[in-house]
């Protein structure tokens, strides 16, 4: 994934607060994915249509974390979400 890539969330995928946890639910497949508060914040930023670079910038401003760490964590989270078809990544280089 590239930092200029943009993420879209399919219509049937929704996030909800369940108790103390934020969960992502795919209504079509029944897939469930739990997020901690940091993951939930990343999800919220993605839902606002930010690019990965913009997500990382916001996280850097909000949390005490190095750029390397946040870029690695965002990439890992996104890879897991792509793997479960909970998001689609659009390459910035695509026409």
């Amino acid at each position: 994934m590239n930092l200029t890539d943009k993420v879209t969330i399919p219509e049937q995928v929704m996030a909800r607060q369940v108790g103390e946890e934020t969960v992502i639910l795919d209504l079509a497949s029944g897939t469930y994915f739990g997020l901690d508060p940091v993951g939930a914040r990343i999800w919220q930023l993605l839902g606002e249509g930010r690019t990965l670079a913009e997500v990382c910038e916001s996280m850097l401003a909000e949390y005490e974390v190095s750029r390397d760490e946040i870029e690695r964590d965002v990439n890992e989270l996104l890879a897991a979400l792509v793997d479960k078809s909970l998001i689609k990544v659009e390459s910035a280089s695509m026409p």
Binding site: M14, R16, V18, G19, E21, V23, L25, L27, G30, Y32
Partner: peptide, 17 residues
């Protein structure tokens, strides 16, 4: 209870739609 809460949330979203 945790799993049931998630399962019911999933059901509710579908039922609501």
């Amino acid at each position: 209870f945790h799993w049931q809460a998630i399962a019911w949330t999933m059901w509710e979203l579908r039922h609501q739609a």
